[in-house]
Nucleic acid binder design. Structure first.
Lengths: 204, 204, 204, 204
DNA sequence: CATGAATGAGGCTTCATTCAT
DNA sequence: CATGAATGAAGCCTCATTCAT
């Protein structure tokens, strides 16, 4: 009898938006942006086509929301235990990264797929660049702590390596790719770094 | 008016096909597969839509041809001077690679874009995997010659790094990316490798 | 919390209806019937879409209400001082008419726009015809009083002229249209009519 | 066997365009622009929806073509026998005008309907204004020849009257509207004008 | 071999209307 | 009385593909 109050409406909206974004995320990451029609997204979300436009004014805006969601998740990547020593932080970072690669491949696929499929949407490029630079900066500071000579270049290289690993697991459909081995190698390499300026009797 | 002989026909066909593939390549790599209509491809190739279907029975088949073209180009990557010593071969490889990244970014973009945009075409995935493995094998054998301890893993890592570099130059629109520096670092790293068994007291 | 009595309800209803009709009128006349969505009308009226359907069972019924509103306004056109002499009545009519054209162009635009945009709604045509005939009759009787030979035809012609003037001010966006001059001419023409039978040797 | 030559193609295109414009004209003038869907237009023209877009890049562009067609027809209005005397020219003009009103009501309806229905398309307004001014100029020069005192104002008034007549025949669905009578009255009025500077003993 | 007119399925989007609260 | 989430038909438009010439 009594009309819904604004808070109730807000809750309904949030829930529906969530459903739609989730469905879009799933479809975009498996089928790709261009092959995911609004029809299919709506069906996957269990709503009508029209409702989509109650929440997102276009397919592109829906994409923006999905990208935003990804960015949120990415923030988590760098929340390592700040009190740990550099080696431990690096180890944690790799552990988390590979755990993501193994378990959340949808997210990783999405990140890259979106970057390359819809690169003509300016906001996607901008977001990619921002996130990427954030990662590089974190890595650089960590590598500096670890005593690397040229932490900036090393960070770029490591960043590239990480991206490449993700890319390959996606392209190669994760089949036969020795992720575990590679992870170990990276951890070894970056946590047992011999400080270049070290004298003969101090190891990191 | 004189009837053309079969050879002439064949030549005309080849030339037309070449034109179409080239146009498709250009458009796919700049605009993306889904946004490149047959109409635009035909216009870019300077032929009619109908003719396209004389040579390729569908847009997908045209894509196959484009992928084939890319594979041809990739072969060139590994044709290094076989008589050179390992260090030199590695240096040549990096030189050629970065020269491609800098000058033929369309090709690289294409390779990755296609892989991610049209990953649902099985033949694309298969081709990607084959080419990638070829590269890894070459690298592995080279790294073995260079005396690396675990050449297979090193090859995978290096392969990932290379892919990552390419990916980043594309995503970041090549702006501010210190390609030259990174190239030098890689060359240093892989051509001045200290064979692990060469000295009696080194660390891994 | 005290239960409202029927009269209060009625007042609320009337006020809300008024708001909606006013908003619809504004939008119809500026944006046109087909481009004015229920959503926009509701927003302009400051109410919810649902409420609209509490008062009007369809967009068409809302249109009917708007047309009714226009008719109300039109009644005013012919309420001239009945005790004045014919010349004065004619002058008053023109004064009022041109004042409307100049100041209430929304109303005029609406009248004509609706007539032509939604002419397939039978009630619109019927209403138009009724109102138009009312005007013609008034004019005819006035022209008869002024001594015109064929007041019916003259009324039709004058009616056409008036409609044409309105139409032009709308189509031409009122720019450069010498309204004042035309008004004077009409007043001159219809208030200084020389009664044909007033002199012994006139021509028809 | 042999491919069509460009001229043949051009003919086909012209014919199809003509069909589409004609169908659109019919539908626009009877049903109105907003209620005439591309689907209906295509069906009326006997072609597929898609073909429309081979010739007109949007519904708006189709409207432009229709408006252009109308303008072409309008040119005919003023092609009177230039060697005739002013009275005769005026008579011819009215004859032609009323013949159009009676027989080509679709055209007239279209002219006005379009002006009011799609007034938010700038090109429609511009075209209306241009055409209208052309008519006024022609009338003005004719009225000057006929010896009217203030031909410019008279022309505007007559223009308004004509527009109003057209408008009314449309709004009133031509029912009971004494077109013939009004025509006669206009012809009388404008072809038996007594030149104001005439002396007492000469009638026109 | 070559052309581009023609088709129709399907994509994105709008909007009048319904309904649970 | 009042809200706005939800629906689904229909609108405009694109595009891979076919086909007569």
């Amino acid at each position: 009898m009594s009309p819904r109050n604004p808070k109730e409406f807000e809750e309904i909206r949030e829930k529906s938006k969530e459903k739609i974004i989730h469905a879009a995320f799933e479809l975009f990451s498996t089928t790709g942006y261009w092959r995911s029609s609004i029809s299919k997204i709506a069906k996957q979300a269990g709503i009508s086509k029209g409702l989509m436009y109650n929440y997102f004014s276009s397919k592109e805006e829906l994409l923006q929301a999905v990208v935003g969601k990804i960015v949120d998740v990415l923030q988590d990547f760098f929340n390592v235990d700040e009190k740990a020593d550099p080696e431990e932080k690096m180890r944690q970072f790799f552990q988390k990264l590979f755990s993501y690669i193994e378990n959340n491949s949808a997210l990783m696929r999405m990140m890259i797929k979106i970057g390359l499929q819809v690169g003509h949407f300016e906001f996607v490029n901008k977001t990619s660049a921002i996130q990427y630079n954030l990662m590089i900066q974190k890595l650089e500071s960590n590598l500096a702590d670890l005593g690397f000579d040229d932490p900036k270049s090393e960070a770029l290289l490591l960043g590239a390596t990480i991206d490449g690993i993700v890319l390959q697991t996606l392209l190669l459909k994760e089949k036969d790719y020795p992720l575990a081995e590679i992870k170990e190698q990276l951890i070894q390499k970056y946590t047992h770094h011999q400080k270049p300026n070290s004298t003969q009797n101090q190891q990191s």
